[in-house]
Design a protein around this nucleic acid. Structure first.
Lengths: 201, 201
DNA sequence: GATAAAGTTGACTATTTGGTCAAGTGGTAT
DNA sequence: ATACCACTTGACCAAATAGTCAACTTTATC
């Protein structure tokens, strides 16, 4: 089977994808250092040698998994909002209020890796820097759009985006630490109230 | 040497203390799973068998290290403030603004362990729950005192303390992720500004 | 000084870790 | 049909892992 960019092959990307999926799950659950290769392979149903055909080592595979999975997540979550013509803030807020998709036991996949790896490994540091900055600029884009259509007054959307990501990450961590999803809910309401104070110039 | 509670022995708590110190450092730097017993022992200058005389296993030692070190930290940082007669907020804010003691590379020792271990190990989960709740109640105590002496208007200090811890943890994480201490500084200024909005009823 | 307890030493073990590799399989193009 | 290729298989390896243990030294107590 030839690998061609933009190929219509549905099959045979399966092995690589199974590895990406299993790696992401195991790393999300146990951390990078705690994710055993043997467990990843078992979960993926892929043999070791086969894995080393696709990836140079555990680290490369984990980095690929994190980047691909989180890129998709961003696209699904924020791509949608930015594509709107109005109601940016409403859509953003209702996403924040919907806790049904959130996993408070495991917390934020980005924050987990940042905390664990950023000060240990330069490659992880670089990767997470980039992902975190994407996260922030996604939020900023929403606020910029909101300013554009008058849902927000002119303001420093960069700082507002910074504080929003800060509060969100903190809220997820708090819920993980306390075991109380309500901590997240309460924090988000305060955050939303704060953002709304920028509605009137 | 007999171990007597409240003994005046200065020496010979050294071995245990060396282990606690080294464990805390290694765990703070590498995470619990990434902290190798051999490295801890080397850093402490203590032999393995000696360590197992004081602690049942790596986990017990790590839990002891985290609890003791962080308790001390809380006492030093917040005990001071609560003991004041006035200027609670000023003192609290100036502590937040002083970044000279902060280690943005490694981030928050509490958050690191929460993220890594809370969903993996029940004993860690319990310990970190308790520590995180102490953190929050320390902050709340400051706000309660501030209300008492009129530095803050009557308000829901519990929610305010929640949001403050959330913003602080998020700010530290953000600085770690981006590598920019300025992100922490900016976030803290926004947070302080928010808290100050409660000065006038 | 005898006794006992507290603390120390470092070699040893069993297991798990990530990684290697030579031999195979099966599809595709010529 | 044959030669080539991407892909698979699983046995193997060296290093690192946490934990054990019997013998030893030091200290306190009488």
């Amino acid at each position: 089977m030839r690998k061609v960019l933009g190929d219509s092959n549905k099959m045979k990307e399966t092995t690589r994808q199974k590895l990406i999926d299993a790696t992401y799950e195991e790393v999300y659950s146990n951390g990078y250092q705690g994710a055993a290769l043997a467990d990843i392979l078992a979960k993926a149903g892929v043999h070791k040698g086969s894995m080393y055909h696709f990836f140079a080592n555990k680290k490369e595979m984990a980095l690929a998994a994190i980047q691909e999975k989180i890129s998709n997540r961003f696209f699904e979550r924020y791509g949608k909002i930015v594509a709107l013509k109005r109601g940016y803030l409403d859509e953003f807020f209702s996403g924040l209020r919907d806790i049904s998709q959130r996993d408070f036991k495991r917390g934020c996949p980005i924050a987990n890796i940042v905390q664990e790896m950023s000060n240990i490994d330069e490659d992880f540091n670089t990767a997470m820097k980039s992902i975190y900055s994407q996260f922030r600029s996604n939020i900023k884009m929403i606020f910029d759009k909101a300013v554009e259509v008058g849902e927000l007054a002119q303001c420093d959307t960069d700082k507002l985006a910074l504080f929003t990501t800060v509060a969100l990450e903190g809220a997820i961590l708090s819920a993980k630490a306390s075991g109380e999803p309500q901590d997240f809910v309460d924090s988000v309401e305060i955050l939303i109230h704060y953002i709304e104070s920028y509605k009137h110039g």
